[in-house]
Structures are given as C-alpha cells and as structure tokens.
Design a protein around this nucleic acid. Sequence first.
DNA 1: GATGTGACTGACC
DNA 2: TGGTCAGCCACAT
Length: 110
Amino acid sequence: MSQRSSFFQDVYEVVMLIPEGRVTSYGAIGKYLGMPSSARMVGWAMNASHTLPKVPAHRVVNRVGVLTGKHFFETPSRMQELLEAENIKVDNDQIQRFEYFFWDPVKELP
DNA sequence: GATGTGACTGACC
DNA sequence: TGGTCAGCCACAT
C-alpha cells in the first residue's frame, strides 16, 4: 500500500494476515498481488522477509504443501515445529490435508 | 546498463 | 506415470 516499498511490502502484509493455523502458497500470494506467474518473486520476497521477524514465512509453502523454504529457517526443523505448534500436521516436510489448511488471500481478503 | 539468480508453477515428453 | 523444460519478474552484483 505504501509507495516507498515495493511489492515485497505487499507480500509481507499478506503473509502477516495469514490466520493462525492456516497456510498459503506462493502462487496464491502472487495471484493476490496480480502476478500469478511470478510465484518465484514471492519466494524471493520471503527470502528478504528475514528482515521482518513478524512475517510468518513458515505459513507459506509451495502449491503442493511442501516446506520448500524450511532450509532458510534458523533450523530446517524449525518450520515444521512452528506449523505443528499451530495444529498443522506435517509429515516428511509436507503439510497433510493441505487443502483444509490452505488460506487463499484472493478469497479471504476483500 | 546488462547478466544471473531464485523459498514457484504449469505444461510437455 | 513420472521427470524435465521453460517462463515469470524483481533484486543483487
């Protein structure tokens, strides 16, 4: 919303709006920002999200529900722990019942 | 100013 | 049925 920031800021805001116990995908965020084909950029934005500790990057996974970015956390297991702490089942670095936990900003946000 | 890279996605072989 | 290829845009060097 702020001009001073790039779409990175928008990504952060969307991620921070993810309800507890829910997850979303890079493509969903990109789609919400008007770049459904630039899911890569969303992931790239998450890489910079480390500057904002308030961004629950652990709630962002790829479209299959795999914790692709877990390796970017302090510890690879940290991402799974955070998800399990929110009652989200994770097995073999993949979210179980991903559809059930999936949170689409395009649908949930106005 | 150009080139390379990336936490993805969808389509093709 | 599964693996591989190319496209996508913004940021860093």
